[in-house]
C-alpha cells in the first residue's frame, strides 16, 4: 500500500520537473539563465511577467485565445449534445457509418488542411476572425464531444425518456428539465476536453490568423524565431498559458470526478 503511493509520488515529481524548470526560468534574469546553472534563482525577478503584462501584443493575444476557445466550446457543446442524443437513442439507416465517419475527422491531420482552410475561410470572410478559428477547431472537437457524450447518454436508461412522456412531458421540457441535468457531468467532461484541445492547438490557429485573432500560442512561436531567444520571457509566457487551463480544471474537478466515477470518458 505505502510502496504504491511512494511510486506514485516519484512519478508526480518527475512529471513536474520540466514544469518546475519553466517556472524557475521565468523568474530568472536573462543573464542568469545563460551564464549560470541554478536550480533556484539566485535573484528572483518578475521583470519577464511585467514585460508581458505591459505589452499590448501579449495581452491581446491572450484575449484572442480565450475568445476563440470559449466560442469553440459553446458551439461544440451546443451541437454535440443533440447529435450525441440521436446516436444514443436511435439506430437508424447508416448511423454506425455516420458515427465512424465523424470519428475519422478526429484522425485527420490538421497539417493537411492548412491550405484548404485558408482558401475556404478567406472566401467566407472568416479568415483571421475568432469565429473562423473556433469553427476550424470543431474539426476535432465535435467528434470527440459526440463520442464522450454518447457514452454518458447511453448510460442513462431509455425508460427515463418513456416515463417522462407518459407523465405528459413535452420533448423540450423533458430534455431541458430532466435529461440535461442528468448528463451534466458528461457535458462538464466534454467541455473540459474541448477547452483543452482548442487551447493547445497550434497548426490551424497559426495558419488562420494574422493579427486580429492571433492567439497566444502563435505569439510564443514568433518569439522563438527572433534573434537571441529571450528564454526568460518565453518561459514566463509559457507559465501564463498554463494558468487558464489549471483554473478550468479546478472549477470542473467535481464534474470530472463524477464523470470519472461513472466510468464514462
Amino acid at each position: 500500500m505505502k510502496k504504491r503511493y511512494l511510486g506514485l509520488a516519484v512519478y508526480f515529481v518527475i512529471l513536474f520537473i520540466p514544469i518546475y524548470w519553466m517556472v524557475v526560468t521565468s523568474l530568472k534574469t536573462d543573464q542568469e539563465i545563460l551564464s549560470e546553472f541554478t536550480l533556484i534563482p539566485s535573484e528572483v525577478t518578475f521583470e519577464n511577467y511585467a514585460e508581458i503584462f505591459s505589452s499590448e501584443v501579449w495581452r491581446s493575444s491572450f484575449v484572442n485565445s480565450l475568445m476563440y476557445v470559449l466560442l469553440n466550446v459553446l458551439i461544440t457543446v451546443a451541437v454535440a449534445v443533440p447529435g450525441a442524443y440521436a446516436f444514443s437513442r436511435w439506430t437508424f439507416r447508416g448511423s454506425h457509418h455516420l458515427f465512424f465517419w465523424l470519428l475519422t475527422n478526429r484522425m485527420a491531420p490538421a497539417a493537411a488542411f492548412i491550405v484548404p482552410f485558408i482558401e475556404v475561410y478567406s472566401a467566407l470572410g472568416l479568415f483571421d476572425t475568432h469565429l473562423g478559428v473556433a469553427l476550424a477547431h470543431c474539426l476535432f472537437n465535435i467528434p470527440l464531444a459526440i463520442w464522450i457524450l454518447e457514452g454518458f447518454m447511453s448510460g442513462i436508461p431509455r425508460e427515463i425518456d418513456e416515463t417522462a412522456y407518459i407523465d405528459g412531458y413535452s420533448f423540450p421540457r423533458f430534455f431541458g428539465k430532466i435529461f440535461l441535468p442528468l448528463i451534466g457531468p458528461g457535458i462538464g467532461v466534454a467541455a473540459f476536453f474541448c477547452f483543452t484541445f482548442s487551447w493547445v492547438e497550434l497548426i490551424l490557429a497559426k495558419s488562420l490568423t494574422v493579427t486580429n485573432a492571433k492567439p497566444v500560442v502563435v505569439t510564443l512561436t514568433v518569439g522563438i524565431g527572433a534573434e537571441g531567444v529571450r528564454w526568460g520571457l518565453l518561459a514566463a509566457a509559457g507559465v501564463l498559458t498554463v494558468i487558464p487551463g489549471a483554473i478550468a480544471v479546478f472549477f470542473i474537478r467535481k464534474y470530472m470526478a463524477k464523470g470519472f466515477a461513472l466510468g464514462r470518458v
Binding site: 483543452t196 497566444v216 509559457g238
Partner: peptide, 17 residues
C-alpha cells in the same frame, strides 16, 4: 490534468529550456 493543458508549443519551449 495539468500537463494535458499545456499548449503544444509551450511543451516545446519547456523541453527546449
Amino acid at each position: 490534468g495539468i500537463p494535458l493543458l499545456i499548449p503544444y508549443n509551450v511543451v516545446g519551449i519547456i523541453w527546449r529550456l
